[in-house]
């Protein structure tokens, strides 16, 4: 599934993104399941708050981590996230 670059991305209302103290990890929780996230995936998903499109997410992360060239990684991860239903566009 492809990300529409113009549309706002928001985290799915039927999933929950949460920091787990014992595991020292962010996780996605959904009916009877859980996905553990690495730090960069978690940072991307935290920006999917319904106020940014793909371009803004990339720009904000590149600024935050003072780097460039994150476009392909971020786009690739968000495509997976969309396919898994963790994020929505509409």
């Amino acid at each position: 599934m492809a990300i529409n670059p113009d549309q706002i991305i928001k985290f799915s209302p039927t999933h929950r993104l949460q920091w787990e103290e014992v595991q020292q990890k962010d996780v996605i929780l959904y009916p009877e399941g859980m996905v553990e996230l690495n730090q960069s995936s978690a940072e991307i998903l935290k920006l999917c708050d319904g106020s940014r499109n793909l371009e803004r997410i990339i720009a904000d992360l590149e600024q935050k981590f003072e780097t460039t060239g994150l476009k392909d990684d971020i786009t690739g991860f968000l495509e997976v996230a969309l396919k898994n239903g963790w994020i929505q566009q509409h």
Binding site: Q18, E20, V22, Q23, V27, L29, E32, G33, M34
Partner: peptide, 8 residues
């Protein structure tokens, strides 16, 4: 407290 997170 021990780490359980999914609850049925």
């Amino acid at each position: 407290k021990m780490g359980a997170v999914q609850l049925g």
